[in-house]
Design a protein around this nucleic acid. Sequence first.
DNA 1: AAATCAAATAAGGTATACCTAATTTCGATT
DNA 2: AATCGAAATTAGGTATACCTTATTTGATTT
Lengths: 219, 219
Amino acid sequence: MIHSLSEENYLKTICHLEDKESKVSPAMLAKRLKISAASVIEMIKKLVEKQWVLYEKKRGIRLTEKGQNMALEIIRSHRLWEFFLLEKLLYTWDEVHDIAEQLEHVKASDLLKRLEHYLEYPQYDPHGDPIPQADGFMRPGDRIPLSEAQLESIGRVVAVKDSSSDFLQYLQKLSIEIGTEIQLVDKVPFNGSVIIRIGKDHPVNISREFAENLLIKEQ
Amino acid sequence: MIHSLSEENYLKTICHLEDKESKVSPAMLAKRLKISAASVIEMIKKLVEKQWVLYEKKRGIRLTEKGQNMALEIIRSHRLWEFFLLEKLLYTWDEVHDIAEQLEHVKASDLLKRLEHYLEYPQYDPHGDPIPQADGFMRPGDRIPLSEAQLESIGRVVAVKDSSSDFLQYLQKLSIEIGTEIQLVDKVPFNGSVIIRIGKDHPVNISREFAENLLIKEQ
DNA sequence: AAATCAAATAAGGTATACCTAATTTCGATT
DNA sequence: AATCGAAATTAGGTATACCTTATTTGATTT
């Protein structure tokens, strides 16, 4: 059965939300996809008919096995293309996502296998998210909160948990962006705050809360 | 102004037809795009409003300068992706076109420049068609009819002029397909027929008409 | 249990890009 | 100039995927 670009985006988003939340509601989907709740309801009906999702009010929206497989394939495509864009076209970590959103929908027999072979079987995308294998297997991610990094280790910022504009502005003040190298210099057991070195600057002290919201990939 | 996938396909197709025909009619577009003439008329109206094409019954459909630029950009994208698919993902010459039809519509600032840099500024796509430069300049193609090849030269089949099923079946009989290497062994002045070697086979004699319909890229 | 409020859903509408089935236009015979 | 046929065009219709504006449902508080 043929599927449209919209349907693919729904499946992908439901898959992501299922990972993060105990129950996926129409309202959550509407928020994530930036469309009205009414439109979501309509589409969910279609996806239920096609047997790609189940919907019960109590349990929320869930992918069927078929739906799950389709979603994983799209996520696989997205992450492989992200890797390509960073590694081969030298885009920066924050630029790749939006382009991969377009590339992920390209269909061709064998495309992902060829792409993956050409990229030498990357395991993680530039944001530290695991790339699902062709058989649907997906290892856990390898990005961790800065607060849990090894002492002395150097990591690269790959994402933030909190994306409030307060937090983002604070990041900007500290000259931290996606890709910035950060070394964990010391942890202060007293209040959980940590001392980090941003790039080659002098070390600074940041709060535990901050350190928990900054996701890094150790290298 | 934002443009849709359909609009892009119209512009691209009009551009190709303008090259080939003295006048582009709605009926020709309908045939090429495999949609009804009525739908073409509708779309042409929209494109005229957006000032991407001009339409007068006597002169037919023509791209404006803006439309021409947009069309060339899409063609550039198409041919760069074709090159990528062949060169990097190792697809065969006949597989790349359909995939590039999808990739050509991906939008991202800088994408084509990066892609082109990464591919080391290819001049021609796998079918011997020239890849327009960023500034819109496009050199002439470098594929020629087999009948005009240099004696002794070895070329690779990149396209056919005549795509009637009779012709294609004859090709199949001779084991010629896109990508097949052909050496021009000799020309017979008498009737214009030529003697060719297909791959590593014994030379065979083919008619002038045949040789004129087979486009090769010398190497 | 009644009131309240947000989430879910229904109803009806829009734009895009197709379609088929008339109808009109126009150039080429006759 | 009348006729004919193909091409162009109009009219009206469909599916997709959105929308806004009710209305309903249901969970939570009072």
